[in-house]
Structures are given as structure tokens and as C-alpha cells.
Design a protein around this nucleic acid. Structure first.
Length: 666
RNA sequence: UGGCCUAUGGUGUAACUGGCAACACGUCUGAUUUUGGUUCAGAAGAGUCUAGGUUCGAGCCCUAGUAGGCCAACCA
């Protein structure tokens, strides 16, 4: 059994188990708000909680956090359930926070009676002002000390709809001076005269997140409530509410859930905010939540991603507490890895040029055997038609090219996949000089060694198909991380390219969702828009292409190389970095680095330098760097002092010759 | 002018206090190949944010910094 190393959450659980928590008390939950579609970021949270459920054979509840009737809709509930199921996870119970409205209300009454909650009747502006700021404490509001009787009366009338929205709220009475702003008398209830997707018009007060979420965990006796990092400050409040409520029924509900937070998933070149994704949908930038360019589960599904690949992906990214940006290349690796093993191979030409095989009889057709998947012996084979006139990719032919070009060129030979070897003899061009036909001759000897193999389709047998090729939606690595620019500024105008392609006839019967590898091109699946008349493919992902990397791309000035989302580093820290490895470099590189350090040194102040004098003896490189900086400073008029002299003397007696040399130079 | 969290190759995650640090992606070689795919073999790349300290020994413990993130919705 291969012991995979545990992530920090698993460590916590193991520790709890070791401290006496019974294994069958473990219980998790995934708590989406039904106000949008699930995206790849949620998959991490899903993978964590459901994964833990699988690992410990513990139940995982699907609980919709539906406390805001203004935003939540049944459509989203359905979509979320569909997506989780599609990913292959099973929840123990389908639950709703709204199921607990009555219980929550009853507990709120008890809290009021204890003097732990009160009705505030100010405007939200007034309350916000009293709340202070992160750096300034808040002050008590005028209604903070209402009597229990008055609070009870008011809260009761709130519930019965006697007041307008915004006129009163129920707040927990904690501490307006608390350093954690969430503890400054947080709201528990607001008046909302809106119909709820489940409770209809039963309620006109609705509980807030903090009050609802923790208590829902508690009611369900969740052992570990896992959420993303931004809820860390909420934990204190989560615990406060939990402790208040616990004393009302410690025997019936003994488990106090534990909230722990992990860093959410970020993917390079994409956005993950539901609000922003909604904007793309609403503004028609994409065709809907399931547009294949969207990072939603439904978008990825339509694009051709498999549940397997997505699960593997979230497993691979790991779980920790630091902010991260995952390279989309990892996601692409996961889907290629899966599809390589499972997708049947077919031939399709996306950008055709005609090939005429002049020594092949006009009417002859041969059906040649083609392997369905070299990675899967069970996959069997099919037959593809070969005839005199074929299409190959334009990019697979050049009139003249060097010998690193393995494809077809005039006078050169190339193998046609599953068929013969052909030689290009001459080309026919139109008035614009565009090649319209490539005339070739074929040879039936297929045993010959030739470097290149091309895919092709027989023109008269080929099916026309629409192919939708996608590129990233955004051209920036982190489109929503720029304070001065809107994420919409980075939209890629060429994220969708529709081409008319020619595919082999076996694809006639392909059904919606079917996945294929178009040989040498990539993985494609049949889009939901396909009809019996018109077949439509989505490009899921291209094959790895080491050839494309070598050919200098004449594309747009690669935005990838543009300034990283890092801020300018201080010269001193750059020098330290350079210095560290100084002694490891060969001489020429050493000279280069030295020049760089001397240049940077001009921006360093003496105050920044002095701490480096104490650098540990073994860090020779850093000390050399310090000597170099010092040299620049002395040259520009710095007066020697005791610290400097001491440092120089110490350097001169070092065992490292480089250091001694530099120090002696001073 | 406060509280909380985080810091390990380009990226993401590991490392029971004990060997100048492991795995995956990415990058680069080479071999194989009727997919410039796959597979296989290999390489480069990290003094673990900085400076002190404790220790025979520190990525891990202590102190002080630095940098980044989160917190002021009747949202979740």
C-alpha cells in the first residue's frame, strides 16, 4: 500500500481520531449557494469534502446554503446536482439551510432571552459607521441595550411582517470594540419580503450566513466543516454561535463542528468569480454558462473534459493554505492523459489542400484497415476509404523546406497514415499564387522508412463537419488581479474559431458527447448543437506539439512575457539572490553577475547594506555581494566606519579566495 | 494604522526536528514510433523570504524584520 503523504486537513483529522474522535462520527458537507453554476474552483472543494468522505467512508451532505431569496433559483439547484453527479460523487443527504429556518428562529429567541441578541432599528449606514474600520474600534449603537421584552416583541413583529424591509434587524450582542470586525455585533436576521424558492412566502425574515451556516453544520452534526481561506475570520464567530447554541441541547446534538480553511483554486488565464462569470453570460461574451470556453463544470463537460480528468486534476493540485495559481497546462495534461487511453483515433482535415495521386486509377476505391486506438488493444479497427483525390492539411506541405521538416515537400516522400507512401511532384497554383493542388505519385511499398506520416481524408468520401476551436478567453495570466484594469480588458477576441472541416466517413454515426482523437491534431467531441444534418465538433485540447514549439511563431507579441503580476523588487534583495549562487557560476557568468550587482548597487542605501555585514560565514556568495556593494559605495564617497573596517578585515581572512580577492580590492 | 493567515525549483504540493530537500506539471537531451502523440532513458532548475538565535545538527523551534493575501455587504 503506497502511503501518500497527507495534506494538512487529513493531518487534523488523523489527530482528532488519535485523540479519541470515533471514526463513525466523521461527517462532511459541501454547501453551495444556488446562485450560479459550479466551476472548476468548486471542484477542489467538492474533491476535498467528498474525497474525505470516500477515504474515511463517512457521509457527505449536499447542503444548499439558501438564505437569500433574492439571488437563489431552482435552476441553479438542478445544475449543481447534475454537475456533482456527473463528477461521480454521491451525497448522503440532499439538504437545505432553509429546512432549518424554524430551528434557527427558535434558537434566536433563546439568544434574545439570554440578552445575547437584540433588535437594532437604525439605517444600515448608521450601523456601518458605528462598526468602525479594521483599524478603528466600533462604538455601541443606541438600541444595544433594549430590554429583553422589547426585543422579543420587535423580533416577533418582524417575523409577522409588520415592518418594512430595512427598518429593523436582529444582531448578536458581542463586542463593538472587538479587533475582529465580524464580532462587532453581527447581523443575524434581516427583513426580506421576497418569496423563497423553497419556503415560498412563509418567512419575511431571513437568517444571515454566519448564523445559518454554522448552525446548519451543527444540526447535521458535521465533524469537519471545510471552506476556503476567506472564511478564516468568520471562524471566531462560527465558534461563538456554536457555543451559545450548544448549551440548549448538548445530549441531542453533542458534536461541535470544526471549521478549517484551505486556499481556493486559481487557474491561470481564467477567472473564477461567479459574479464575473455571470457578466460574461449576461453580456453575451459567451453563449451561456456551458459555453465550452467557460471554466464551469458544465462548460468543461461540453468542451469534452471527462470527470476522471477533472478529479485527477484536483487531486494533483493538492491542498494547502497559501494562495496559488495553477498552470492551465496541468489541466490540459490531465485531460490528454485520460483521453489518450480512451479516445478512438480518426482522421480529420481542418485546413485542407487537395492532393491528386496521378498514378492511382480514377475510379478506384480501397478500404484500408485503420487501428482505432494503439493504446487500447480492445479498441479494434475500422476501414477508411482511399482514392485518387485526397485532402491533407495545408501546413503539412511546403514547396521547399529544410530536412527538419518531416512533412511533404516537392520531391520528398511521406507516409499517409494507414495507407501508402507518396511523393510530391509538382503543384498547381491559382492566379494569386495559392497552391490549389499537389500532384503526387504513390508507391505500394509501404515498408520503406520515411520520416513523416500525414493524416488525410478521401475527398469524395469525406464528411463535412463544423469544428469549433477554442483559445483561452483571457490573454492575461491573472485577468482579475489588476487593480487598475478591468478583467474585461483582457478578453481574447480570437477565443473561438469556427472552421469547416472534412472528416472520415466513420464519423457519420457519432453521437453528441462522443470523444475522438483527430490524429496529429488533438481531442475533439461532438457538441450539443450537432444535428443529424450537421455534425459539430469542439476541440477539447490539442495534442502536445513539440514541433510547433520549434517553429518561431509569428503570432502576436506574446503577452505571456509581459510583466509578471509581481511588484518591483528592491535592488538589495535582487543582489542577495544573485549573490547566493555567485560562487557556483563559471567564470564568464560570474563576470556577468558581478557587473549586474555593481549596477544594482547604485540603488542600495548604506542602511540596507549594513545588516549584510553579519552574514553567516558559510554564505560566501552573499558576503561577496556585500563587498561589491561596499566597493561601489566607497567609490562614490562613503566614509569608512568601524563596522565597515571590521567586515573587510574578516573577509580578507576568509578561506574563499574570491572573497579575499574582492575584499583586498577595497 | 488594528487583527488574522501565508512564505520551499518557473508552477503546484511533500519532507516523522536529524543526510546541501522529494513528487507532479512545465522546460531541455536522447531512444523508440505508420500520430513531431504515446512510451522509455536522462538532464537542467531550490543554500527552503531576510537577519539573528537555540542546537553536535534547523525548511521545521525562538526573536526581529520583509513581502503577499484576507477582514469595514441587511451577500455567501
Amino acid at each position: 500500500m503506497s502511503e501518500k503523504s497527507l495534506n494538512f486537513i487529513e493531518h487534523i483529522i488523523e489527530e482528532d481520531l488519535a485523540n479519541g474522535l470515533e471514526k463513525d462520527k466523521l461527517r462532511f458537507r459541501f454547501p453551495p449557494e444556488p446562485n450560479g453554476y459550479l466551476h472548476i474552483g468548486h471542484t477542489k472543494a467538492i474533491g476535498i469534502s467528498f474525497g474525505l468522505g470516500l477515504k474515511y467512508k463517512a457521509p457527505v451532505n449536499l447542503r444548499f446554503d439558501d438564505t437569500n431569496p433574492a439571488k437563489e433559483e431552482q435552476e441553479y439547484v438542478d445544475a449543481i446536482k447534475r454537475d456533482i453527479k456527473w463528477l461521480g460523487y454521491q451525497w448522503a443527504n440532499e439538504l437545505y439551510s432553509s429546512d432549518y429556518f424554524q430551528q434557527l428562529y427558535d434558537w434566536a429567541i433563546l439568544l434574545i432571552k439570554e440578552g445575547k441578541a437584540y433588535v437594532d432599528s437604525q439605517s444600515s449606514e448608521a450601523m456601518a459607521e458605528q462598526k468602525g474600520t479594521p483599524t478603528q474600534p466600533g462604538v455601541d449603537g443606541p438600541y444595544r441595550n433594549r430590554s429583553v421584552e422589547e426585543n422579543l416583541d420587535l423580533f416577533n413583529r418582524m417575523k409577522h411582517g409588520e415592518f418594512e424591509e430595512g427598518s429593523h434587524v436582529l444582531r448578536a450582542k458581542i463586542d463593538m470594540q472587538h479587533p475582529n470586525m465580524l464580532m462587532r455585533d453581527p447581523l443575524m436576521y434581516r427583513i426580506l419580503k421576497k418569496a423563497h424558492h423553497r419556503t415560498g412566502t412563509d418567512w419575511c425574515i431571513y437568517p444571515m450566513y454566519d448564523w445559518t451556516h454554522g448552525e446548519s453544520d451543527y444540526i447535521e452534526q458535521i465533524s469537519h466543516s471545510l471552506c476556503s481561506l476567506e472564511f478564516k475570520p468568520h471562524r471566531e464567530l462560527y465558534d461563538w454561535f456554536k457555543e451559545q447554541v450548544y448549551k440548549y441541547q448538548p445530549e441531542a446534538l453533542p458534536m461541535l463542528p470544526k471549521q478549517r480553511e484551505f486556499a481556493r483554486l486559481n487557474l491561470s488565464y481564467t477567472i473564477m468569480s461567479k459574479r464575473k462569470l455571470l457578466k460574461l453570460v449576461e453580456e453575451g461574451i459567451v453563449s451561456g454558462w456551458d459555453d465550452p470556453r467557460m471554466p464551469t463544470i458544465s462548460g468543461l463537460r461540453r468542451r469534452g473534459y471527462t470527470p476522471n480528468a477533472i478529479r485527477k486534476f484536483v487531486e494533483t493540485v493538492g491542498v494547502a493554505k497559501r494562495d496559488n495559481v495553477i498552470d492551465v497546462a496541468l489541466l490540459e495534461f490531465c485531460i490528454r492523459e485520460d483521453l489518450n487511453k480512451t479516445a478512438p483515433r480518426v482522421m480529420a482535415v481542418l485546413d485542407p489542400v487537395k492532393v491528386v495521386i496521378t498514378n492511382y486509377p480514377e475510379d478506384k476505391v480501397e478500404w484500408l484497415e485503420a487501428e482505432n486506438n494503439p493504446e487500447d488493444e480492445q479498441a479494434g479497427s475500422r476501414e477508411v476509404p482511399f482514392s485518387r483525390e485526397l485532402y491533407i492539411e495545408k501546413a503539412d506541405f511546403k514547396e521547399a523546406a529544410g530536412n527538419k521538416f518531416f512533412r511533404l515537400k516537392l520531391g520528398g516522400e511521406v507516409r499517409l497514415k494507414n495507407a501508402y507512401i507518396i511523393q510530391a511532384n509538382h503543384v498547381v497554383k491559382d492566379a494569386n499564387g495559392e497552391i490549389t493542388e499537389i500532384h503526387c505519385t504513390y508507391s505500394e511499398d509501404t515498408s520503406k522508412k520515411v520520416k513523416g506520416t500525414l493524416h488525410w481524408v478521401s475527398i469524395k468520401h469525406a464528411l463535412k463537419a463544423e469544428v469549433r476551436e477554442y483559445d483561452r478567453l483571457f490573454m492575461d495570466e491573472a485577468p482579475d488581479s489588476h487593480q487598475d484594469k478591468d478583467f474585461m480588458d483582457f478578453l481574447n477576441p480570437n477565443s473561438l474559431k469556427v472552421v469547416e472541416a472534412f472528416v472520415e466517413p466513420s464519423l457519420q454515426d457519432a453521437k453528441i458527447g462522443d470523444r475522438f482523437q483527430f490524429q496529429r491534431l488533438g481531442y475533439f467531441n461532438v457538441d450539443t448543437d450537432a444535428t443529424s444534418e450537421k455534425i459539430i465538433f469542439n476541440k477539447t485540447v490539442g495534442l502536445r506539439d513539440t514541433w510547433a514549439k520549434q517553429t518561431p511563431k509569428l503570432k502576436q507579441p506574446t503577452p505571456q512575457n509581459a510583466p509578471k503580476p509581481q511588484q518591483q523588487r528592491k535592488a538589495i534583495s535582487v543582489i542577495q539572490q544573485l549573490g547566493k549562487k555567485y560562487t557556483n557560476y563559471p567564470e564568464d557568468k560570474q563576470a556577468k553577475v558581478k557587473a549586474e550587482i555593481l549596477e544594482l548597487a547604485k540603488q542600495v542605501t548604506y542602511d540596507e547594506l549594513e545588516p549584510l555585514f553579519g552574514t553567516a560565514v558559510k554564505k560566501v556568495g552573499t558576503r561577496i555581494a556585500a563587498v561589491l556593494i561596499l566597493k561601489v559605495m566607497l567609490d562614490t564617497g562613503l566614509e569608512r566606519n568601524e563596522a565597515i573596517n571590521e567586515f573587510i578585515e574578516k573577509a580578507k581572512t576568509d578561506t574563499n579566495q574570491l572573497l579575499v580577492d574582492e575584499a583586498s580590492n577595497l
